[in-house]
Amino acid sequence: MSPTVCPDGASQGATSEGHFAAEAPVLRVAALRTEFATAAGIVPVVDGVDFALARGEVLGIVGESGSGKSVTAYSILGLVEPPGRVTGGRVLLGDIDLLALPPEALAAIRGARVSMVFQDPMMSLNPVLRVDTQIIEALRAHGSIGRHDAHARAADALARVGIAAPEERLRSYPHELSGGMRQRVCIAIAMLHQPEVIIADEPTTALDVTIQAQILSEMQALCASSGTALLWITHDLSVVASFADRVCVMYAGRIVESGPVDVVIGAPRHPYTRGLLDSVPALAAGGRRLAPIPGMPLAPADLDAGCAFRHRCARASERCALAPDETFPAPGRTLRCHHPLDRAADRDS
């Protein structure tokens, strides 16, 4: 959470830009906790996550599989399926707590003020419904619209995300489109109502690198033009490095380090962030061997009160058996570590 957040939130939800205080976040997640009931008992998968998203900002959430980053995304819009359950915290959109809303009120916000794009474009469109059906139902969900207008808006939405011959594509079934095109359709659907926030759950992971780059830059441009904030969830640090404003690094359900993207990536303080950077070919220092992080993350059921990373961490000491509190080493930066790397730590240390 940025320390510069203004707490009153009075100006949120304002329709004209002039009313916006520059620092007022559109979305604020506080102490979010999501648990899953498993055979081994209740397991927290998201454990006290805090962050805020300013208008038009791109916030990357980075973590490996099982770090709880996707569940965080689902929790924001109440899309966690049993046996999962959001058990604590607040998700504030302006001054509305999404977690406290009745289902119908939450549905009115989904897709209109906060929308989502998913990882696998092969699976996120219904294979037995035509593209136009799936776009128009999203239009109709948030206001009545005539058949002719709906069709025109659907075609327009496809054109905006760079789909050629949108009229033709509207009549297609998802299997007739390529993966990149399907993801564009999903993005078009997410952008339909010019939401304040788009949550993107690894939307480019399943795509070719070239398509990935195209989609990244297109989404960036679209969001910039409409002032939409983007919550970009990924395991790929290089993606975040190239276009996020700020980044949160997640490990075992917690944000271990966050801050402006160039600072976090340029001078990481948490050993896990350092380890992640060293295992990315493009970001590791040239000519050096990649340094994978030893070991595997603990299963959520095996987590204890200590720092979850200490079993894989070269700097771990006995103090790490007690989880570190969140500290604020610099404005806009958070860290959870007893033994942070030096601010000036060079890469050879």
């Binding site: 689902y74 399926e81 549905a107 929308s115 989502m116 219904n126 139902e137 999203a138 948030h142 659907i189």
Partner: peptide
């Protein structure tokens, strides 16, 4: 796709 449909607010 069910999750995505819900995320659309239908």
């Amino acid at each position: 796709f069910v999750r995505f449909a819900r995320a659309k607010g239908i």
